[in-house]
């Protein structure tokens, strides 16, 4: 019984959040709605029994990517000052160009498709998880990471190194030209 409630709650949160991200005017509000949508997706992971993934989603996305987005918005003009050039086109919604519209609607389509398919499954009253949740997936993920997917595990550390060094170099105001 609780599985259905949890599923419906997180599915609604995910889809509504995603919708609001597309339609919100203020970039900061878009960030908040994205956060709500990510928490909804974490809830969906729970109904699928992937509890470690739900926690990773919380830690990495909600605790990391969203804060980075907020900092980036602050560092690029705080998101509230429409540049003088574009004063007249005030009413064009945030994601003006058609390409970005397609992008976000694609995301919405995929998300709602998945949620729709799951919805049918849940309504048939499937046993929520085949393994007991408190047996959890951490041990099996750990074992798999260390035995079968070792290469991916090691390469992801190199990927992170590349991202760290690259972003640090880009974000560093080089002394020569002086940050404007």
């Amino acid at each position: 019984m609780f599985a259905q409630i949890l599923f419906i709650l997180s599915a609604l949160l995910a889809v509504a959040g995603a919708l609001m991200v597309v339609f919100s005017r203020d970039i900061m509000h878009a960030c908040i709605y994205l956060l709500a949508s990510l928490v909804g997706v974490a809830g969906l992971y729970l109904t699928l029994g992937a509890d470690f993934l739900a926690a990773t989603q919380l830690v990495v996305y909600v605790g990391g990517v969203i804060i980075l987005m907020l900092f980036a918005i602050m560092l690029t003009g705080g998101g509230r000052e429409p540049s003088e050039k574009m004063k007249l086109l005030m009413q064009v919604p945030l994601m003006g160009s058609p390409r970005t519209y397609v992008l976000s609607f694609l995301a919405l389509l995929v998300l709602s498709l998945t949620v729709g398919k799951l919805f049918v499954r849940v309504m048939e009253g499937f046993t929520s998880v085949d393994k007991l949740p408190y047996m959890g997936t951490v041990d099996s993920i750990g074992t798999l990471l260390v035995t079968k997917h070792v290469l991916a595990f090691e390469i992801s550390s190199v990927l992170l190194l590349g991202a760290l060094v690259g972003a640090a170099v880009i974000a560093r105001p080089n002394k020569k030209r002086g940050a404007k």
């Binding site: 429409p82 086109l89 005030m90 992008l103 694609l106």
Partner: peptide, 28 residues
Amino acid sequence: MLARKNIIAILLGIELILNASALNFVAY
């Protein structure tokens, strides 16, 4: 308000797509 097409808004969209695909993998 922010009428211009903000690049960060596009990055938000990309995050959404990645999430949707990750959810797909787990479901399948």
